[in-house]
């Protein structure tokens, strides 16, 4: 019975994910059809010669009826063809692939740092409930959550790169120079993860407190299991489930934050790619990159869902947590 429910839950998540991707594709297509004015003029600029504009329209298939264009677009995307960059003539898929690792590294480093700091802080606050440290941590958490990540990015840049000159300012680092790349990863990672440290610390604190009051924890205490084992082995695992749900739900915001942080630090990445394409109104690149972000987001969400079943043998519980977490 349980397995059937789990399978049904995963199936419904899969359908939702596919709907999100399909919705995004339709939306992006609709937007491309909506580009106001003559698309060739918008994309190529007013200086383009009429012959070139006509050729361009034919190449892009812009002279065909809308429903045909939609099919071509969908078929292309499904075969991994995200179109061609109008300006450089390079395939968009290749451009996106070449910058994805930077965005990946940044987001994963940020999640890693947030978990690494947020979880212990949350556990500490929960085990020292009501102490001065607990109150201070609560205030710091709110501050971390409230302050926008790009503001943090700018201030970090100012203090550590410009005033103190400890860390390099901009860019992703020399290709192949790992030490340089790592150094340039530090500030963006801190900027991006700060809010998440606050989120996770608060969530872990409250779920720890909730779990510690549950009967199964009392059972362990009644058998004299050491408080250390009770806290870190048993309760922490229970408290982690809502945290994973939060990460799953927040991955979209994290990607959004990464875009801003990449731009502040002039780091290569998906955000930078979209931003640069935007400033020259290069819509095919924006379209392709946004689509990739959406797919990434959907895949990560599915992975998060799967990871519940790894931690929690009862999927239903995980579902409940995920839903409740959605309100916060």
């Amino acid at each position: 019975m349980m397995r059937g429910e789990t399978a049904r839950y995963l199936a419904s998540r899969l359908v939702t994910s596919l709907l999100i991707v399909l919705g995004a594709m339709l939306l992006l297509f609709a937007l491309s059809a909506l580009v106001p004015g003559d698309p060739a003029a918008t994309l190529l600029g007013p200086q383009a010669s009429p012959e070139f504009a006509r050729q361009f329209i034919r190449e892009m298939g812009l002279d065909r009826p809308l429903h045909e264009r939609l099919w071509i677009f969908l078929a292309n995307v499904l075969t991994g063809n995200l179109g061609v960059d109008v300006l450089s003539g390079r395939p968009v898929a290749g451009m996106v692939l070449s910058v994805i690792p930077y965005t990946f590294i940044l987001t994963f480093a940020a999640i890693g740092l947030a978990v690494l700091l947020g979880v212990p802080l949350g556990v500490f606050a929960a085990t020292h409930r009501g102490s001065i440290a607990d109150h201070v941590l609560a205030f710091i958490s709110v501050a971390f959550i409230a302050v926008p990540s790009f503001v943090v990015a700018i201030l970090l840049l100012l203090v550590f790169s410009i005033w103190l000159d400890w860390l390099p300012v901009l860019g992703g680092g020399e290709p192949g120079d790992w030490a340089d790349q790592a150094k340039r990863l530090i500030l963006p990672t801190v900027a991006l993860s700060l809010g998440w440290i606050g989120f996770i610390a608060r969530l872990v604190r409250s779920s720890m407190l909730e779990v510690m009051a549950e009967p199964h924890i009392r059972t362990l205490r009644a058998y004299g299991i050491s408080e250390r084992l009770v806290t870190y082995k048993y309760a922490l695992k229970n408290a982690c489930i809502p945290t994973i749900a939060l990460l799953g739900l927040g991955i979209g915001r994290l990607l959004g934050g990464a875009v801003l942080v990449e731009i502040v630090f002039a780091r290569p990445g998906l955000g930078r790619l979209i931003y640069d394409a935007l400033s020259v109104r290069n819509f095919p690149v924006v379209q392709g990159a946004v689509l990739v972000v959406v797919v990434l987001f959907v895949v990560v969400n599915l992975l998060v869902d799967l990871s519940y079943s790894a931690i929690d043998p009862r999927m239903r519980q995980a579902q409940r947590y995920a839903r409740d977490g959605g309100a916060g």
Binding site: P215, R218, Y223
Partner: peptide, 29 residues
């Protein structure tokens, strides 16, 4: 606790941690 005094609880549904196997509970005891 757990050596000279032990306790059996009312609701076996909630008295065991749902994320750990029976074996883990017993081994720790």
């Amino acid at each position: 606790r757990g050596t000279r005094i032990a306790m059996i609880f009312q609701d076996p549904m909630t008295a065991l941690n749902p994320l750990f196997t029976i074996g883990t509970h017993l081994v720790d005891v």
